[in-house]
Structures are given as C-alpha cells and as structure tokens.
Write a protein that binds this DNA or RNA. Structure first.
Lengths: 262, 262
DNA sequence: AAAAATAATTGTAAAAATGACAATTAATAA
DNA sequence: TTATTAATTGTCATTTTTACAATTATTTTT
C-alpha cells in the first residue's frame, strides 16, 4: 500500500467524517479528538466435557505474531457489532454451534498485551456439549481439545484468561446448574457425578450427591437406560428446561465451599 | 488546529510508528492494519452508605454531549494505563480516595452507546465509606449522592450499568463480607443490620442475623458504645482485617436467596 | 428515688440440610 | 446357577436454619 493510499485510508476519511460532525448543530465535535483509539478484540474460553474429562478448545494460530502457538479463539470486534455478537460470531466460526452458553468473563486491557499494537480483549467463556460439536467441527483452525491439566503454552495473557475462566466456572457451578450446559440432552447420574468430580478435582459421596441433585427438581427421569458402562445400566435423565430457566439465578448449593478453604 | 497539524498528529506519527515495525524482523506489521480502532473508557458505579440509605454517587456533566445531565463518573483510558489503573485514577479524582474497593463489573460495547463516536466502556463498581469521602469531597464535578430508589435519568446506557451493579452487589454481598467496605472502621450491629436491610429491601430477624454475623468470626467487639441512637447504646465492632482478607473468597451465606425467587 | 421509655442484647426449640456411613439391586458373563 | 459389575437406595448423627419474645442497660420523666 502506497503512502498516498494510506493517507486516504487512515487520515483523510476520518477527517472528513469529523468535519461532517462539526456543523453548527454539534458544537462539541472536537470533544474526543485528542483521545487515543485502540483495537478491541474478543477471546473465547471454550469448555467441553467428553464424558471423562473437562477440556478446553484451543486453536493453533496460522499467522503471525506467535504463529503456530496455541491460542484461544478470538477476533477483532467489527464496526457494526457489539462484543456479545462478536463472541457469538467467533464461536460459530470455530464450532459451527449457535445458541451455546456464553457469558462475559472479564476485560483485559493492560497497555501491552499484544506486541503489535494495543488491543483490549473482552473475554467470554462458553460451555458446549462436545458431542454436538464433533459433528460439525471444521479443522480449518487446527482446533484441538486439551484436558485442563495439560494446557500448552498460550500466547499473550491467554493463560491468565483460562485460569480466571476455570475459577469462575467452579464458582458459578457451585451455585447454579451451569454444568448441565456441558452435557448432552440425555445423561446419567454417574456421568453427572463424573463431571462435578472432574471440575472440582474432588470426589463426592454418591448418595449425598444424588440426594442433592434430585432435591433440585431439575431432572426428569427417562425410561431408557444407558448400558454402555455397566451391566445394570444407568437411567437417563433430561433437564427440565422450564424449571432450569426459571430458577437459574436462584442459589442451589451444589458445592458448599468450591475453593476448599477451610 | 490546522489541517497540517492534524496531518502530523493523526497520520504521520502512526505511520512512522508502523514503518518502524515493518523492518525485516517483523514481517507481519500490516497484520492489524485493516481493523477499526475505537475509544475505550471506564465508568465507575460508586456506592456509599450514609448510615440510613445505600446511595450512588453521580456527577452532573459539565460538557457536551448531554451537558447538565447526570452521569456516572468516567473517562477515557490513557495510552499508558490499563483499565484498572484508569478506574483508580478516576475514582481518586472524584472522591479523593485511594485504596477503595473496586471491581470490574462488565464491559459495555454496543456499537452506538455514545452518539459522538463508538466508545466501549469498561464499568467498575466501587464501595466507599461516605464518611471518609465527605472530608475530601471536591465540588468540582457537581457530584451528588442519590438514594437508589430515586436515581435521576442518566446518560447513554448508564442506567443499565447501575442496574447491573446493584444486582451484582446483592449477589456478592449474599456470599462475601463485601458490605463492610461501606462502613466506617467502627460500627454497630444495628447499623450493619440496617445496611443489609437496605441493600436487600427486606427485613431480617435481629437474633438470627446477629448469630450469623458473629459465627463468621469477622467482628471484634470493642469496649466503647455508640450512644447516638439509643439510651442503652450499642457496642462498636471492628473488622478483623486479617480474617477478612484471608477468608474473603470463602462462601459465607449471609443471605440465602438474595433475589427472593422461591 | 422510682418509674417509664427506648433500643440493644440474648435463648430455645422445631425443622431442614448436611455429612458420614454400606447394603441391595439389576443385568450380564461365566 | 453363580459370579461379577456398577447403579441404586436408606439411616442416623450433626449442623444449620428458622421462627419466635423476654431481658437488660441506660436515660428521661415523674
């Protein structure tokens, strides 16, 4: 790109734009002129559960900087979209999924996160059912699932983002039925217990756990059993979606003290 | 400012900067060239408690746009500071206080929040002891405390920010000893009860409340009494700071169901 | 000096939730 | 028929929560 092109692209167009705003109707047009603009991106911490382990979806960057290093899926926010929309778009690109659980986590805005240019990142965490995912996965982004205990080195401050997301997941799952977002539509109680035990890296008493889960009224027992992992087979359950949505914000004390601080 | 000046300020300098980066060592210099930059600001939702009511600190804007309307205290993030630093700086300007409780709330990034130009706002909420504040208040910003039930119209999406902050305050105060941040160093149990009752717009049983509070081990009974509001007088208590800090993230179920959803 | 007034402080019993414990059941495989 | 495997289910002691009102310390009034 020539200097002249750059001139038009970066300088002239904004100037004209600003000039338009400086008509008598808007006497305050120069208000923000002095301020520094910066790039805004979205990064997604994507959790999944394959029935055994809680995992994280990462991509291998195909471009500089930090080419070939592992990274969270992210992208710049476009001029016409908000951060939530950007996160939804990026998640759709990566997983092919729509309507997944997505929540804003935190915004990382240290001046020197990205070596190229100042970029703030609005981080989101997502919970998806890996079975849904596997059907639609595109290898375009070199995406891979990693168990949480063996996450590779990540670019920029993505490691910190993951740590924060994990903490928030534990926090929230202790109080709200959020982990069901990781499960397929039909699941068994032993599977659910596995999930909780993996998330909290702890083991829970089956009887007490079942009692707690059942007392929430969230589960609908199905007639079919899953005979995959035992001779007796375990009954399938479904989420009572209405109950789930209506009571999502209510406290359910699944885990008393998620951080194990005495 | 002349066109030439603008030219140098906005165009030339960044161009040179980018050119520096485009040495053979960094073949990816143009990577982000196409992306749109935007303004990033910080807004602070400042809560205070005057002994009677939970209140919000607002300022009357002295400049366009939305001059004379009420607003949260905010400002643009500077090139050399992160968002947390910006929030601290802005809070210092408004209240004169340092070291106050400050927590990132949420980032608002809809494309058209500010009519002048796209600006994303990283919102923080702060809890301060109004007594500390009153000593240092500067009227420069036309700051005023408003009870939560009579907040005036606010600019942009600030109303939504306040609503979210209030919700988060309730949520967090139900589980963590965060409301102590609103109290002076010495306070009485009836005052603490007042605070909780005002925050949750509910009334709590004195005996059960006291028992709960005392069981946390957070309070140190003082020998003096506050005789301001009764003949008998109420003992002062202080926070056990060490205990407070060490156990802050631990769940203490002050309020069982903060949203009152049955 | 006694009584009244005011707000702070304190106790108890029933109900609910939790935590700690192992035997029984359903189905398949031997 | 028996052995095997994993799922399912129950009880009791402890802790926590809830519901409810009498007592106490001090000042003001009589």
């Amino acid at each position: 790109m020539s200097f002249l092109q750059l001139f038009f692209k970066i300088i002239f167009i904004p100037y004209v734009y600003a000039a338009n705003r400086s008509t008598p109707k808007r006497p305050y047009m120069n208000k923000y002129q002095k301020q520094t603009r910066l790039l805004a991106a979205v990064d997604c911490i994507v959790f999944g559960f394959d029935g055994q382990k809680l995992k994280l979806l990462l991509i291998q960057r195909g471009f500089e900087p930090e080419k070939n290093k592992w990274s969270l899926m992210g992208g710049f926010i476009r001029p016409t979209e908000g951060a939530d929309e950007a996160a939804v778009r990026i998640l759709k690109i990566l997983t092919g999924l729509e309507g997944v659980y997505l929540e804003q986590l935190h915004t990382f805005a240290e001046p020197v996160r990205d070596p190229i240019e100042r970029t703030i990142s609005i981080a989101y965490f997502a919970l998806i059912d890996t079975h849904q995912y596997e059907k639609q996965i595109s290898d375009e982004y070199h995406a891979e699932w990693f168990p949480l205990e063996s996450i590779p080195d990540l670019i920029f401050d993505h490691k910190r983002m993951v740590a924060m997301a994990k903490e928030k997941l534990r926090y929230k799952a202790a109080l709200h039925p959020i982990l069901f977002e990781l499960l397929p539509p039909k699941f068994t109680l032993p599977l659910l217990l596995n999930l909780f035990e993996d998330v909290y890296e702890a083991s829970f008493d089956k009887r007490n756990f079942t009692r707690k889960i059942m007392s929430t009224g969230l589960l609908l027992k199905q007639k079919e059993k899953d005979k995959g992992s035992s001779k007796k087979g375990a009954f399938y359950y479904k989420l009572d979606k209405k109950h789930y949505k209506k009571n999502f914000n209510k406290f359910i004390h699944f885990i008393r003290n998620p951080n194990g601080i005495s």
